[in-house]
């Protein structure tokens, strides 16, 4: 992918794939995995300090954690009802992880601090140490697969396997093909949308690295980071809510 050279940014190279950073034994760690770890450590440390000494009258970090978790829980509960407690950890982690990873990707140093190294095919390339975690398809597809499995296992558990097939079929058995196709495209659209937005944002910021103009795009990227997290989370939640919705409700909707 040397399109940057095509539009006049000679010497710059951005690859769709995450670049290998270092090796732990036989495992090669890419820069996106490295960033994902940083996000994880950050979230775990902040969570630890926020809930280390819980008070009935909250203050400081606990207040912040309660506000975020409470807001997300209300949203999840509003969609899936009383079973919210079971699915909440995954849904909430989608949102919190994606938004923090997206915003972290906007920090100075991302995509700009790096080393020259081998891309594994004998080419000498620039390898940034930090690269936004969601600009790696492995990350976004991974989360989309988790969402996919969550949605359909919840459907199967609630409706039982046969009931869920009926649920998918709806009023006409032939519709099951269309519904299965739709459901299969959900993780594809989820993962590619998130990846595309974040990757494009990185490229955009790299291309628009001019004073003032760059700042304007930075503000946009902050917004996009939040919006993409919301879209991923809300879509997963809505499909989950549909899969979990009762059989009788389904019939009522068509009568």
């Amino acid at each position: 992918m040397d399109f940057l050279e095509v539009i006049g940014f000679k010497g710059l190279h951005i690859s769709l794939a995450a670049e290998p950073l270092f090796h732990i034994g036989p495992i090669t760690i890419t820069n996106t995995i490295f960033t994902a770890w940083i996000v994880m450590v950050l979230l775990v440390v902040v969570s630890f300090f926020a809930t280390r000494n819980m008070q009935l009258v909250p203050s400081g970090l606990q207040n912040f954690a309660e506000a975020i978790v409470g807001m997300l829980y209300d949203i999840v509960e509003g969609v899936v009802g009383e079973r919210a407690r079971i699915v909440f950890p995954i849904i909430a982690t989608f949102f919190i992880y994606i938004v923090v990873a997206n915003w972290m990707g906007l920090l100075p140093g991302f995509n700009s601090i790096g080393v020259w190294g081998d891309d594994g095919k004998g080419h000498e390339i620039f390898i940034p140490i930090f690269r936004a975690a969601n600009s790696d398809l492995n990350m976004t597809i991974g989360m989309a697969l988790i969402a996919f499995i969550l949605i359909h296992s919840a459907g199967v558990i609630i409706h039982k396997p046969l009931g869920y097939l009926k649920h998918l079929a709806g009023p006409l058995p032939i519709l099951i093909l269309i519904n299965v196709a739709i459901e299969s495209f959900v993780p594809v659209s989820l993962s590619v949308r998130l990846f595309g937005n974040i990757f494009a944002g990185e490229v955009l910021l790299l291309v628009m690295r001019l004073p003032v103009v760059g700042a304007a795009f930075m503000v946009l990227e902050v917004l996009f980071g939040l919006i993409q997290a919301l879209i991923f989370t809300m879509l997963t939640l809505i499909f989950l809510g549909l899969a979990m919705s009762g059989e009788h409700e389904h019939e009522e909707a068509h009568t």
Partner: peptide
């Protein structure tokens, strides 16, 4: 990444949610 993410889910469930 899937394992990474599920580990994060587990940790956040324990420490935050």
């Amino acid at each position: 990444q899937i394992i990474n993410f599920l580990l994060l889910v587990f940790l956040l469930h324990r420490l935050l949610y």
